[in-house]
Amino acid sequence: MGRFNVNNQYKAIVIGGSAGSFQGITKILSNLPDNFQLPIIMCLHRLKHVRNGFVEALSIKSIMEVTEPYDKQSVKRGKVYLAPANYHLSVELGQYFSLSTEEMVNNSRPSIDITLETCAYAYRQRLIGIILSGANKDGAMGMKRIKDRGGLTIAQDPAECMIDTMPKAAMALTEIDYTLKIEEIIQFLIELHKQYK
C-alpha cells in the first residue's frame, strides 16, 4: 500500500491555479507517468487578451500534449486541456466542453469556480480537484462543490505556495483530503496511475 488511499473510481482530474502556479503545473505535467489515463482539465488564470503562447509554453515540458478545447469537444482519456483565454470553460453532463463569454466571476475569465463546479456536476464522486498557488479566492467554492458531491480534494501546501491565498481560501471553505507539496502531488498521481493497470 502506498501513502495515499486511492482507487480507480476516478474519471477526471481538474486543476485550478493562478499567480505562482505556473512552475508547479509544468513540474506536474513533466513528471506524469507515461500513458496516464485520466483526462486533466486545467483552469489557470491568464492574460485575457493574449490568445497564443501559454498552451505552447505548457506543452514544451509536458509528457502529454496540452490543448485548448473547442466548444462542444468531447473530453478524452489521456489528454490535457487548458481553459482558453477570455472564455469560461465548463464540462457538460455527457462529458464534453462548453465555452462561454459570460461576465467575469471572481474578477476572472476563465473562472476556476466555473470549471470546478461544472466538473463536479458532470463527474460527481469520480473527480479529483487540485487547487494550487494563487492570489485570490477563485476556486474555493468549486473545491467545496467537488467535496460536496463526493470527489477528492487536494490543495497545494500553503507553505510551498508563492501566494497562498487560493489554497487557504479553499481550506477555509471545505474539507481538503490532502494538503501536498508539488513533489507529493506527483507521487499521488503516480500512485493513482498504478490503480489503472
Binding site: H88, S90, V91, E92, L93, S98, S100, E102, I114, T118, Y121
Partner: peptide, 8 residues
C-alpha cells in the same frame, strides 16, 4: 447548453 443556461 446546459451549463451556461443553468448559471443564467
Amino acid at each position: 447548453a446546459m451549463s451556461s443556461f443553468r448559471r443564467r
